[in-house]
Amino acid sequence: MVGIVGYGAYLPRYRIKAEVIAKQWGSDPVAIVRGLQLNEKTVPGMDEDTITISVEAAKNAVRRAQINPQEIGAVYIGSESHPYAVKPSGTILIDALGIGPDVHVASYEFACKAGSEAMFVAYSLVKAGEMKYAMGIGADTSQGAPGDALEYSASAGGAAFIMGKEKVVAEILFTHSYTSDTPDFWRREGEYYPRHGGRFTGEPAYFRHIIGAGIALLEKSKISPKDFKYAVFHMPNGKFPMEVGKRLGFTKEQIETGWLVPYMGNTYSGSSPTGLAAILDVAKPGDLIFMVSFGSGAGSDGFIFRVTDEITKVQDRAVKTRELLDNNKIYLNYGEYAKFRRKIKLNE
């Protein structure tokens, strides 16, 4: 059975509290924290980007898999904040990890679901017998315009997954993708910040696609929501994943292990993959995991994983996601945050 043989996450150390952003723009901090269920978010250092985040997550995945990086036949990085408009992110990653040059590399983009896209293609190539191992990564240093609601959530982080057939820690039992042309959120070429359709991002976009993929997965697998130990959904804010999980028949207890968003923010392409990494950190053999991503534009990729006996051997080989979230935090004020995120216009 094909599945995950190694996984790893990475989150920057810098943080900004939602109340600091709210005070900057004269908004009510209590209402923001309560309404969006966002307390704080990660902020990338000035020297961090999607590539450096992907490299650190991928190193953790290789540490867990304990494989020869030369045997990885494909590396795909999904992100909407690739540092170059023209030049792949993955080439830097393969050189940093000692993968290739006999390797297939590509940068993927599909708003917030580019990471699960990369995971799906990596899984499919291994399943097809094209290669022994393939790596799918979701990472972002997402952008939110100053004063926009996105500024409370747009954060940075990512997770990497190595797919293979031997020593699998989580088998992939079923997958399903659900896609339609839904213009809920976009960024035109040359624009610095994305635009969104406000409330239109909810029902016709996030909820329709996650529920579409989720119901199809449940029907395909004939597994009931109550049989899963964990569920993780794309996390644009604290409220949406809990609500969509409830509508699909999952409980708060099943969701909260991977529900990192109140203290991580929305890591876009790294959102549900990072949640999955946090679940794998504590999962036990036999546990079933339900995952559905969401990317604006719009689509969802769904996976059902079954954790194997191998999981307990790999969990402690690399840093755990909750450790990255809870330790070594450095808090920024709004001015420092604006500088870090290059929101201040400077003379050339």
Binding site: D47, E48, D49, I51, T52, A96, N328
Partner: peptide
């Protein structure tokens, strides 16, 4: 040691990466 961006070759040039230390 971790991989970080070391410098940018101007606004339109390449991005240069390399090692930095973190505590």
């Amino acid at each position: 040691l971790v991989l970080r961006k070391i410098q940018e070759d101007g606004k339109a040039g390449i991005l240069c990466y390399g090692y930095k230390a973190v505590v």
